Amino acid sequence: MEKYQPTLKNWSQEKYIQAYKFAAHAHQGQNIPGSDIPYIMHLSFVSMEAIAALSAEKELSTEKKYDGNLAVQCALLHDTIEDTNITFAEIEAEFGTSVAQGVLALTKDQSIAKHFQMEDSLKRIKQQPPEIWMVKLADRISNLQSPPHYWTKEKKICYREEAISIYETLKDASSFLALRLANKIEDYKAFIL
């Protein structure tokens, strides 16, 4: 029996499942902040945004070629170093250097002052392939939902301004995600009024 080899996508379900299982195990017991929803839902949303962008970008442009596996795996793993006990070395051993470097770039450096962390992270993301930029865009799209009830107006304003910075820095990675993020930023105003 001949194996089916799809040509319409540039990522593999097996690599997705490998990363999903790894992330689910790493984030086991964690919830999305301010909710009782398991954290794996956030990672699912980010990977869904990345997959939609890979599909849309393939239709929009024949010039750009993306490594879909890099985008999807980093989308699922992007918070493992930052929010769990998983190390760079563990990700590198399981998924390779490119994925591990992407996840590390997406990880905030807790050793520097909080108000410099996003700027530092964006600088490191910019040194990575555009697939990593796409993950950061997808992450903020996913996060621009109704903010936790305990956030102050100032926190919401800062979060939206941070989203604008992400948009301006990384928008060239994907016109699809850039438009999605721009719309989410506009809609987020409703939570600040």
Rank of each mutant, 00 (worst) to 15 (best):
G102C: 01
V99D: 04
T107E: 05
Q110S: 14
N69G: 06
V103K: 01
T80L: 11
Q73M: 08
G68W: 02
N69E: 04
N85G: 15
D79R: 09
H115G: 09
A75I: 05
V103S: 00
L70M: 00
G102W: 01
I86N: 03
L70E: 00
S98P: 05
T84E: 05
A89M: 09
V72S: 00
S98V: 14
F88E: 03
Q101G: 05
G96L: 06
E82T: 12
K108Q: 13
H78W: 09
M118P: 00
S98Q: 14
D79P: 05
C74V: 06
K108S: 11
L122H: 01
R124F: 05
Q110P: 15
E90M: 11
G102D: 00
E92P: 14
E94W: 09
Q117L: 08
L77E: 00
L70W: 01
G96H: 06
V99Y: 04
T84R: 06
L70D: 00
L76D: 04
K108Y: 13
T80Y: 09
D83M: 14
A75Y: 02
A93G: 10
T87N: 08
L104C: 07
G102R: 00
H115M: 12
E119R: 14
D120I: 01
A71Y: 03
K114I: 07
H115W: 11
L77G: 01
D109A: 01
D79N: 08
L122Q: 03
F116Q: 14
M118F: 13
F95I: 08
A75N: 01
T97R: 13
I81M: 03
E119F: 11
L106I: 03
Q117Y: 09
Q110R: 15
S111I: 10
D120Q: 12
F95K: 15
C74G: 04
K114Y: 13
I125P: 02
T84L: 02
E94A: 10
L70F: 01
N69W: 05
I112P: 07
K123T: 08
D79L: 05
K126P: 08
K123M: 10
E92T: 12
N69Y: 06
T87W: 06
S121G: 08
K126R: 15
I91L: 15
A100P: 09
A89G: 07
K108M: 12
S111W: 10
F88T: 02
E90P: 15
K126C: 10
E92W: 09
D83L: 13
F116I: 06
A89W: 11
Q110G: 13
I81Q: 02
K126D: 07
I91Y: 12
T80F: 07
D83Y: 14
E94K: 14
L70S: 00
H115Y: 12
D120C: 07
K108A: 10
A93H: 10
H115D: 14
F95T: 09
F116P: 10
T97V: 13
S98N: 13
D79W: 09
G68Q: 04
L76V: 07
E94F: 10
K123P: 06
F95A: 11
T84Q: 05
D120L: 06
G96W: 06
F116N: 14
E119K: 15
G68I: 03
L122G: 00
K114G: 05
L106M: 03
E94T: 12
L76I: 08
T97H: 15
E82Q: 13
Q101F: 06
I81K: 01
D109I: 02
S121A: 13
A71G: 04
F88D: 04
I91P: 15
L104G: 06
E92N: 15
Q110D: 12
F88P: 04
T84S: 05
A75R: 05
